[in-house]
């Protein structure tokens, strides 16, 4: 276990999460000022609030772990545990998460042009996340 290398990895990850949080806040601020109220702006608002909240939770958890070696070690073990990795792989993670994020972001843009297509994209994103979660829960029970 190379805790120092992992610490650097988490620090790099936190930089990306901070950047993502800033993007969510900027999109929300710009959107609320320049985009008229409607389904599209509400969807983007929801996406930004949800994404921003998730980013804050991860930021808080991982920043806390960086200050405490024992917590960092536990986080390393959790992340590198081979059974957990096998379960995640069976549930298609992290690719399903990336695909869902891509679909949600595409839906946010498409919402301004075609609401039916955008809603379909958003539902597809939610559906694949749900399927992945169910597979993960089943695997956790069986493995």
């Amino acid at each position: 276990m190379n805790l120092e290398a992992y610490r650097k990895k988490v620090q790099r990850r936190l930089v990306w999460i901070r950047l993502l949080a800033v993007i969510f806040v900027v999109v929300e601020l710009v959107g609320s000022r320049f985009v008229p109220d409607g389904n599209a702006s509400n969807f983007v608002w929801g996406l930004c609030v949800g994404g921003g909240f998730m980013a804050l939770v991860v930021l808080f958890q991982q920043s806390k772990a960086l200050k405490d070696d024992e917590k960092l070690r536990k986080m390393y073990i959790e992340e590198h545990d081979e059974r957990q990795q096998a379960i995640r792989a069976k549930a298609g993670q992290p690719m399903v998460i990336y695909l869902s994020l891509g679909l949600a972001m595409t839906a946010a843009v498409v919402f301004f042009f075609n609401e039916v297509v955008a809603a379909t994209l958003a539902l597809a994103a939610v559906a694949q996340m749900l399927v992945s979660l169910i597979v993960k829960l089943v695997c956790m029970k069986r493995m």
Partner: peptide, 16 residues
């Protein structure tokens, strides 16, 4: 051994 308690449980019970 650098793993989680759940993994040890699963190995002991033959699930993993």
């Amino acid at each position: 051994v650098g793993t989680t308690r759940q993994t040890i449980t699963s190995i002991e019970t033959g699930k993993y």
